[in-house]
Design a binder for these strands. Structure first.
Lengths: 335, 335
DNA sequence: CACCTGCGGTAACGCGTGTAACCTTGGTAG
DNA sequence: CTACCAAGGTTACACGCGTTACCGCAGGTG
């Protein structure tokens, strides 16, 4: 009686060595073609053949355990929290990092506080961590990562995060830019949509803060309004729109903006007549809305630049310059 | 002169042991509170204090190396390839897997063929692999994974993948359903949008095949039309719409459908008068289009069910039943 | 006094790698 | 003949961890 049907033990370099009739060291020399050590053509061929035949693939964990450093780059973010804009960016970053021999990995655990999150990430012992929502990264969390041997932490954040390499990425400027625009268009009572979906709060709160900062320097007021990404929630919000008395709204996102736009129309609220609407991300679909959506566009640093910087950071511990995010407004008919 | 400023060596359990004045074994017993071994309250406290003070976090790789099994579950997919529907699903799956002690990780490398892709995934030695695009998974690729000690491969695919646990997920049924509907609505010359974005081909091709299958059993014809997710591409396609002479189109996706919808309107092509349009995913925004978009909705197996099945697969090698995907049509005014 | 019986702790091994150090062999110069 | 060398191979160790076996010691029992 065998074990489980597919209990084929994992193939190790020792198996390859055995089959090729050489030592494990030789196998290692061949497969990594180490320059410091010569190995004859015939045995090299034998080893390669054996590896091929067994379908050997090295064990990354063991390798980096031995090497004392991993080639993992971790982006601690949930898949859905990234809009389509950021998703595409992350994809490109992955390709760029591959050029340098890194493996990019996406993983967010759900944890109450930054430190226990950091602890979970640290278990993977990545070479570097790229925090897109760097503002939710405490200095203490970075400390945890550092103590775990993470060589570089790149934080996209508005404020300097102690111990991390910070790239300017001030979410509050987005809210500020949107509300500045709305105020300039004559709005006096501006709403700011707070999405209720999990994971979005870390982006939404600073955007609200930026909006409030602008309002404080003008005669306008800012009111946060909760909105879930469902028809029901949007309809419910639109239904009490007149009593809210808002004449402008920054909708967090183009997607939330589009949702709100349609709910308002159903309610007979005219855009931009009764209320001006501004979104964010300048998605492809935004220009297609009725009316076309004014949006804050984010110019992200190029993935190639970030990948290079990351490599610098991990390899030489340098503190490379990375241009930050530069938001600007794309004006269309919704405002 | 010191090394790099932040060259703090990673904290290991040996450091904790040293500080607590006990052996490494004791540290391990305490931190994993092993039931087989008693340890006095006082030393337990000392160990915990030391671990806390040093900010110790275990090394997942070393742990699973020793244990002979990892707790990694790999989803080999690029972030952007997953639409918002799937993203949310993946997020939930992550939570469910966490309950079982697994760590879900997203990582796609860009490789030419399935086998070298599989090789890259296998390096991480995950406990399981969940292939959302299981149809691009060859039996040979599964073999590679299996040889690397991956305990379970869950493939969402239309056909049985040798060696993998297949969950029925027939993309071609989506295309078939859409075209069946279009034909029933009187369409004779049906277009099928082929998105040009990388990574989408594996989903688009079977959908086209399903569409063609339906057409073959009717008097209608199917024509693939290329479309990139940009205004320019859509406008260019819409411009030559009349010469294409299509009276129905399955647009792959609600997002591509919406893009096409607007381009067609700009060109003066009426929907559904001149051409009926069907999308897929039934996104929140789809009902809000002008006209509201008919869409194929996918009923995915619940994340909880998949997580349980995965655990079964990894832990007991069982072959649990997982209900497959069940697509159905949501009819609106665009067709 | 010899003997078992928990209790609380430690030494030591192995997981799969990469590499520094060493060993063997044949060829060649002194 | 001895000394040396380069080429091509192997042995041995460490990376951080979990676990098995063992050990000292106290207190009870025959």
């Amino acid at each position: 009686m065998g074990e489980k049907p597919t209990a084929a033990a994992a193939v190790t370099s020792a198996d390859v060595a055995r089959l090729a009739g050489v030592s494990r060291a030789t196998v290692s020399f061949v497969l990594n073609n180490t320059q410091e050590h010569r190995v004859s053509e015939t045995t090299r061929a034998r080893v390669l053949a054996a590896a091929e035949q067994l379908g050997y693939v090295p064990h990354a964990a063991a390798r980096s355990l031995r090497a004392g450093r991993s080639n993992l780059v971790l982006i601690p973010a949930s898949v859905s929290a990234a809009g389509s804009l950021v998703s595409a960016w992350v994809d490109d970053l992955e390709s760029e990092l591959e050029r340098h021999g890194y493996v990019l990995v996406l993983h967010a655990g759900r944890f109450p506080d930054p430190v226990s999150s950091a602890r979970a990430w640290a278990e993977l012992r990545p070479a570097a961590v790229v925090a897109l929502d760097g503002d939710s990264l405490s200095g203490q969390a970075v400390e945890v990562l550092s103590r775990a041997g993470v060589r570089g932490v790149l934080a996209f954040a508005s404020r300097e995060v102690p111990g991390a390499h910070t790239v300017d990425f001030d979410q509050s400027r987005i809210g500020a830019l949107a509300v500045e625009h709305l105020v300039a268009r004559g709005c006096r009572k501006v709403g700011v949509v707070m999405p209720q979906e999990r994971g979005l709060g870390t982006f939404a709160r600073p955007r609200l803060a930026g909006a409030e900062g602008v309002a404080a320097r003008s005669t306008a007021t800012v009111t946060p309004v909760d909105l879930s990404y469902t028809h029901e929630s949007a309809a419910e919000l639109a239904a009490r729109w007149r009593e809210l008395g808002l004449d402008g709204v920054f909708a967090y996102n183009d997607e939330y903006a589009a949702l709100l736009l349609h709910a308002l129309r159903n309610e007979g609220v005219s855009v931009p007549g009764d209320v001006a609407v501004v979104g964010c991300d300048d998605l492809v679909l935004s220009a297609l809305q009725q009316p076309p959506l004014t949006s804050v566009r984010l110019d992200l640093p190029t993935p190639a630049q970030v990948a290079d910087a990351l490599h610098e950071l991990v390899d030489r511990g340098a503190r490379p310059e990375v241009r930050g995010m530069e938001p600007f407004l794309v004006h269309r008919q919704s405002s």
